[in-house]
Amino acid sequence: ALGKDRRKIKSAFIIGAGIITHYLAQELLKDKITVKIVEMNPEKANKFSEYLPNATIINADGSNEEVLKEENFQNYDSCISITGIDEINMFISIYAKKIGIKKIITKLNKLSFVDILGENSFQSIITPKKIVADNIVRVVRSIANKKKNLIENFYRLENNTVEAIEILVNSDSKINNIPLKDLKIKKNLIIAYIVRNNVAIFPKGTDVIKEGDRVIIITTESFFDDINNIIEE
Rank of each mutant, 00 (worst) to 15 (best):
T220K: 13
V114N: 14
V67Q: 07
I85F: 13
S173L: 07
K69Y: 08
E71K: 12
N109V: 09
I218W: 05
D207H: 11
L157M: 09
R7D: 14
K187N: 12
H22P: 00
L2G: 15
N109W: 12
F154L: 14
I116S: 15
T220Y: 03
I88D: 12
D115N: 15
S112G: 11
V132E: 12
R7W: 06
I190S: 07
K184C: 06
S81K: 04
K36M: 04
N188A: 13
L189F: 01
G100T: 15
G16I: 03
S49N: 11
K174N: 12
F73C: 03
F73Y: 10
R196P: 07
F202R: 09
T106G: 02
G3F: 07
E70Q: 13
L117K: 11
D31C: 06
R7H: 13
Q123L: 04
F223M: 05
L108S: 10
E71Y: 11
F223P: 00
I80F: 01
K187Q: 14
E233R: 10
E43I: 12
I194P: 05
E70W: 03
I94T: 13
F13P: 00
K36N: 00
T34W: 05
Q123K: 14
T161C: 05
K181I: 10
V132S: 11
S11I: 09
Q26E: 13
I9H: 09
N153A: 15
M90I: 15
K186P: 07
N145T: 06
L180H: 03
A164L: 15
I136Q: 07
Q26W: 02
E39T: 02
E87V: 06
L24A: 01
K30L: 08
D134R: 08
K174W: 04
I92L: 03
I116C: 08
K187L: 08
N120D: 15
F223C: 02
T83N: 03
L117N: 10
N109P: 04
V195Y: 09
K174Q: 06
L29Q: 14
L24W: 01
S124M: 12
I190C: 06
T127A: 15
K32C: 05
G3W: 08
N188E: 13
I15T: 01
D5C: 04
I9N: 04
S142W: 02
I101N: 00
K187H: 11
N135W: 07
T21L: 09
L52E: 08
T83D: 05
A60I: 02
N177D: 14
L117V: 12
I57L: 09
V139G: 01
K186L: 06
S112C: 09
I33E: 01
V132W: 11
E221T: 00
